Computed example of a mutant assay.
Amino acid sequence: MAMVSPLLPCAVMALVVSVLPSQSVAGDPDLLQDICVADLTSGVKVNGFACKATVTEDDFYFKGLGAAGNTNNTYGSVVTGANVEKVPGLNTLGVSMSRIDYAPGGLNAPHTHPRATEMVFVLEGALDVGFITTGNKLISKTITAGDVFVFPRGLVHFQKNNGHGPASVISAFNSQFPGTQSLAMTLFGATPAVPNNVLTKAFQVGTKEVEKIKSRLAPKKA
């Protein structure tokens, strides 16, 4: 009688497992309700906001992107978000937008969006934009009205208006709440503060330089 290889049962089991749906794709891949308007007053948050019982058309409406924002600040740029906090009807839908306005010379300082890829459409003006890969390569381009540029999820990126007039873009995100981490504010404006000896070693500068940067990024007192 032919001998059955002891490896055969293992091979069969591996084949069966390979064709079964994994945990990541098993179950319901889509939403189980038409809408889930965010209850922003609820303390319950499970990868999003709890759904509120009574909804209106205003939960799906926002007109804040139609007008330019005030760019009179340190960086000369301002972001007007249309995320789930402004449009509760976006809850569970995985999309959001924002408008960014830039004064001449204005900068949207290097930052990341940990939960989303960003695509910008230039409304007016010209911008120098770029992102840095994890291999420390800068991918940059000058974009003008009508152009589109993409910043991959989680990568450090920036936009700079080097023109003589104002500029603006509309940004689209594949997240209802993409999140933003500004590198400068994250490192020099954190609460509690990142220890000076960490920053001096990381940036190879002295304590006075670190303190100077921290003082400039400290929240303004009312």
Results as ranks from 00 to 15, higher is better:
P104Q: 13
A67P: 04
Q204L: 07
K221T: 07
Q181D: 15
N196F: 01
G81A: 07
M13G: 06
Y102F: 15
Y61V: 02
L15W: 01
N162F: 15
T117L: 07
L32Q: 12
L90A: 01
T144K: 14
N72E: 12
K45I: 02
T180P: 00
A184V: 08
A50F: 09
T133C: 11
L15S: 13
L217N: 13
Y102L: 03
F203W: 10
A2W: 09
K160Q: 12
N72V: 06
R153T: 04
V95T: 05
L90E: 04
P192H: 07
N83Y: 07
A109V: 01
R99I: 01
V122N: 13
T180I: 02
K212C: 10
K208M: 08
N47P: 08
I35W: 06
T200W: 01
I170G: 02
C36F: 00
K160E: 03
N136Y: 08
V12F: 11
K220S: 12
P6M: 13
C51A: 11
C10Q: 09
G105L: 10
A218G: 05
A68G: 12
G94A: 08
V210M: 08
K212G: 14
A109R: 02
D34Y: 05
V129D: 06
I170S: 04
A53K: 11
H111F: 03
V16E: 02
